[in-house]
Design a protein around this nucleic acid. Structure first.
Lengths: 133, 133
DNA sequence: CATTGACCTCAAGCTGACTTCAAGTGGCAG
DNA sequence: CTGCCACTTGAAGTCAGCTTGAGGTCAATG
């Protein structure tokens, strides 16, 4: 079983060494020993880091991600949390869509102030979380 | 024209007074005068706040939002840049959609361990920035 | 055997988006 | 006129997720 030291893990995962140490502090990853002072990581850490990266991309906090690894680093995914995240992503997609449309409108609409343009207002109102103006 | 003071704006927009002052500091909103010490806002500020809220929900930094819709909703960017922004949003929407679908799949996949599920593996690999495991 | 250079630790710093706090101000109801 | 209370200011604090820096260690290379 070949062990990796932090530089190698960093290079192969694209995660900075300082971040790796930070993750270890938080308990997201575990080094499996030391060579002198140097942490040694088992190869499975790369897979874990993929999961972490993925989780971050999905908007999970590191703490939450930490909770998703059972003993032995095997992922233990909470279905309801995942669905909740998916819902949140869906909401964000909706916001992004509204924003995209608003941006395109602003780029093309000749009205002097967009805030006065009824089309623009309608777009914003479609953006849900909006106040009652 | 009826003016709102900060408490009213806060209540109607759902944005905390401290946040409103912060936004004013950053130049995202402008008060149109004072009554004594108290800021007075024109009603259009509510629409601006919708825009800001929307932008935030879409994941933009306040600075970015400031550039997209300057004061009065007039963008500070030329047309083509706005369209470029919109294009970028579209790409992001695509990514998030993929991620959302993947998340839902993972939440529902009956495979005993996600690591054994080919779709999950694909997702990890598709996590783009992912290491070669 | 000495040097190198990648690692180590711990503390502090940073960015973003605010919140909280202490001390002060002033419009308005009574 | 008094007092209340919502506002004001500026500074400091908070949280996440790291990065940076100073000073130290040690395995491997020449």
């Amino acid at each position: 079983m070949k062990l990796l030291d932090i530089g190698e893990v960093s290079e192969r995962s694209g995660v900075a060494p300082s971040a790796l140490r930070y993750y270890e502090d938080l308990g997201l990853i575990t080094s499996c020993g030391r060579n002198g002072l140097r942490r040694q990581f088992g190869p499975e850490v790369l897979l874990q880091l993929s999961l972490i990266t993925l989780g971050k991309a999905a908007g999970f906090a590191l703490k939450d991600i930490a909770g998703m690894f059972g003993q032995g680093g095997r992922p233990e995914l909470p279905r309801d949390q995942l669905h909740a995240r998916a819902d949140a992503l869906e909401a964000q997609i909706h916001e992004l869509t509204t924003l995209r449309d608003a941006l395109r409108h602003v780029a093309d609409c000749p009205a002097p102030s967009h805030l006065d343009c009824p089309k623009f207002q309608k777009l914003l109102r479609a953006g849900s979380l909006t106040a009652e103006v």
